[in-house]
Computed example of a mutant assay.
Amino acid sequence: MLERFRRKNDTQITFVLPSDQPCGNVSVVGDFNDWQPGAHPLVEREDGIRAVTLHLPSEQCYEFRYLAADNYWFDDEHADAHDGQNSILHT
């Protein structure tokens, strides 16, 4: 799931997943971090979900996926769109 908060100079995007789906470490990987695995790991919060927040330039389009243990790649079903390979995010 994606949570958004548009600010004056950027958009705050929080990538959110349940704490147990999938098991193990998960990071969000996309063109905003040069597709570097582990650059933005999701961290478990007190409410039992995992999340990471990024500040991205507004009015842009980004491709991303999640990467979990054992090289398991998956999309965000709540993304703005999907291009057949990646999830799409509009800020």
Rank of each mutant, 00 (worst) to 15 (best):
F32L: 09
V52W: 00
D75A: 13
V52L: 01
P41Y: 02
A69D: 12
D80M: 11
I49M: 07
P18D: 10
R4F: 01
D83E: 05
G84D: 01
T11K: 11
N71S: 14
F64K: 03
E77W: 12
W35A: 08
P22F: 06
A69Y: 05
N86A: 12
L54M: 10
P57V: 07
P22L: 03
D83H: 12
N33L: 06
V26Q: 06
D10T: 06
N71Y: 07
C61K: 10
H55P: 00
D83W: 08
N33S: 13
T14M: 12
G48W: 06
L17E: 03
L89H: 07
V26W: 00
I13A: 11
D70K: 15
S19L: 00
R6N: 09
D47Y: 09
I13S: 06
D31P: 06
G48K: 13
S27K: 02
G84F: 01
A81P: 02
E77S: 15
Y62V: 03
P18Q: 04
G24T: 10
E46N: 15
S87I: 03
E77Y: 13
A69N: 14
R6G: 01
Y62C: 02
Q12C: 08
H55E: 00
D20Y: 13
R45Y: 01
I13T: 09
R6H: 03
L2T: 11
Y62S: 01
H82E: 05
W73E: 13
Q85E: 05
I88A: 11
D47Q: 14
E59A: 13
P37E: 13
N71Q: 13
Q60R: 15
P57G: 10
S87G: 13
E63L: 07
D70R: 15
H55N: 12
E44A: 13
D70H: 15
L42T: 04
I88N: 11
N86D: 06
K8L: 10
D76Y: 08
R50A: 10
E44T: 14
V43D: 03
Q36V: 15
Q21L: 14
S58F: 02
M1D: 06
E3W: 12
R50K: 15
L54I: 09
Q60W: 02
C23A: 10
V28S: 04
H55V: 02
H78G: 08
W35E: 03
R6F: 02
Q21Y: 11
W35C: 07
Y72K: 14
G24I: 05
E59C: 13
R7I: 01
F5Y: 02
G24R: 12
N9V: 08
A81S: 15
Q12I: 06
R65P: 00
N25P: 03
N33F: 00
L56P: 01
W35H: 13
C23N: 09
R65E: 00
A69K: 15
H82V: 04
C23F: 04
N25Y: 02
V28P: 02
D75V: 11
R4M: 06
P41E: 04
D10M: 06
N33R: 05
N25V: 04
D34E: 12
L2N: 05
S58D: 05
T11N: 09
Y62Q: 00
E44P: 08
F5A: 04
R7C: 04
M1A: 14
A39W: 01
A39M: 09
A39Q: 07
L56M: 10
G38A: 14
W35T: 11
D20H: 15
D34S: 15
R50Y: 03
H82N: 14
